[in-house]
Simulated assay, not measured.
Amino acid sequence: MKTLVLGIGNTLLTDEGVGVHVIEALAPRLAHLPDVTLLDGGTLSFALAGPIEEADALIVVDAANIGTRPGEWILLTGDEVDAFLMSNRRATVHEVGLTDLRVIAILAGQWPEKRAMLAIQPDVIDWGEYPTPAVAAAILPACAAIHELIEEWQHVA
């Protein structure tokens, strides 16, 4: 099973770049897992449609306004991801792009059945290369949750 872990965000805007920081932290943890690709999706582009369509499983990691304290996170799976994207169009800076990529993949018949989104509540979105302490503290627990989900999916597949 080909799994794509897509971290999105702008690393020049403090907490907004947390998806990319999670991808960087995941690299050593997932090196032993077969068929797992980590991709820095930056601030999204339609070029990501191809990698999404080629994946059997997709995990998106992003900063999102989930209405909790900074650094708290949620892991949505399956239809929960779709519902979140469609009902919270302004939840992330990239939301329109994620929604568009979802539609493209659905139209191509390639929206992965196994899909998840790990959304982390940002504290500050302003110029800065590093996440705030609350968001930085969420990176390792987020990595552990993603690692656990991938292993679960691989054992079920």
Results as ranks from 00 to 15, higher is better:
residue 58 L to S: 07
residue 72 E to Q: 15
residue 80 E to N: 12
residue 91 A to T: 03
residue 95 E to A: 15
residue 98 L to V: 08
residue 79 D to C: 04
residue 80 E to Q: 15
residue 58 L to E: 02
residue 80 E to A: 15
residue 92 T to R: 04
residue 52 I to Q: 03
residue 82 D to H: 04
residue 96 V to F: 15
residue 83 A to E: 09
residue 86 M to T: 12
residue 63 A to S: 13
residue 65 N to P: 02
residue 88 N to Y: 11
residue 103 V to Y: 15
residue 96 V to T: 14
residue 76 L to E: 08
residue 52 I to D: 03
residue 82 D to F: 02
residue 93 V to I: 10
residue 92 T to S: 07
residue 74 I to M: 11
residue 90 R to M: 11
residue 66 I to Y: 04
residue 80 E to W: 07
residue 61 V to K: 00
residue 56 D to E: 15
residue 83 A to F: 02
residue 94 H to E: 08
residue 75 L to I: 10
residue 71 G to N: 09
residue 89 R to W: 05
residue 85 L to S: 00
residue 83 A to M: 08
residue 69 R to M: 13
residue 56 D to S: 12
residue 58 L to I: 07
residue 79 D to R: 08
residue 91 A to Q: 08
residue 103 V to A: 13
residue 95 E to N: 10
residue 86 M to Y: 03
residue 73 W to N: 06
residue 95 E to W: 11
residue 93 V to D: 00
residue 73 W to D: 03
residue 91 A to S: 13
residue 94 H to V: 04
residue 84 F to T: 01
residue 72 E to I: 04
residue 88 N to K: 09
residue 101 L to R: 03
residue 70 P to T: 10
residue 69 R to K: 15
residue 91 A to C: 04
residue 97 G to P: 05
residue 98 L to T: 04
residue 59 I to H: 01
residue 63 A to F: 08
residue 86 M to C: 06
residue 93 V to C: 05
residue 94 H to T: 03
residue 67 G to M: 14
residue 57 A to D: 04
residue 73 W to T: 03
residue 65 N to A: 15
residue 97 G to A: 08
residue 73 W to I: 00
residue 71 G to S: 13
residue 74 I to H: 04
residue 54 E to W: 10
residue 101 L to N: 04
residue 70 P to F: 08
residue 51 P to L: 11
residue 76 L to H: 06
residue 82 D to I: 07
residue 98 L to E: 01
residue 89 R to P: 02
residue 57 A to S: 12
residue 79 D to Q: 12
residue 100 D to L: 15
residue 61 V to A: 06
residue 71 G to L: 12
residue 65 N to I: 11
residue 57 A to P: 01
residue 102 R to H: 13
residue 82 D to V: 11
residue 87 S to C: 04
residue 83 A to T: 15
residue 54 E to V: 01
residue 51 P to M: 12
residue 63 A to L: 10
residue 81 V to W: 02
residue 63 A to C: 13
residue 91 A to G: 12
residue 55 A to T: 10
residue 73 W to K: 10
residue 101 L to G: 03
residue 73 W to H: 09
residue 68 T to C: 11
residue 91 A to K: 07
